[in-house]
């Protein structure tokens, strides 16, 4: 499978990374290597069992019972105590 420079730019955009023009060729090549490894796996011919349930564990549930939430001061600690009980958000573009 081929990877184009445009795809690299698109992925960079989604990951919120900026890519220097002179790094683009190198990154495209690296990404192609990674994707081609998947091609190797895809080339495997034979019975493949679907592993939906890799650890053969299912139905781990919690009952619908309310427990106390955290005090708001604790919740807002990482944003300097918040503003009027809210998380303030930095302006986005």
């Amino acid at each position: 499978m081929m990877v184009t420079k445009e795809e690299i730019l698109d992925i960079a955009l989604l990951a919120k990374l900026s890519v220097e023009e002179d790094k683009l060729d190198e990154l495209t090549k690296e990404m192609m290597n990674i994707i081609q490894f998947a091609d190797t796996i895809n080339a495997f011919d034979g019975e493949v069992q679907e592993f939906d349930n890799i650890n053969s564990l299912s139905n781990v549930f919690r009952e619908d019972e309310v427990l106390p939430s955290y005090p708001r001061e604790e919740i807002l600690k990482n944003v300097g105590g918040g503003e009027n009980g809210y998380f303030p958000v930095k302006k986005r573009m």
């Binding site: 919690r62 619908d64 019972e65 309310v66 427990l67 939430s69 955290y70 708001r72 919740i75 807002l76 918040g82 009027n84 009980g85 809210y86 998380f87």
Partner: peptide, 24 residues
């Protein structure tokens, strides 16, 4: 209209003070 949130035991009650029904 469950009593608690989908992945934690915080209440789903509507109309309370902001960020009072939260946990990590």
């Amino acid at each position: 209209s469950t009593k608690t949130k989908i992945f934690c035991s915080c209440t789903t009650q509507f109309g309370s003070e902001p960020n009072t029904h939260c946990c990590p």
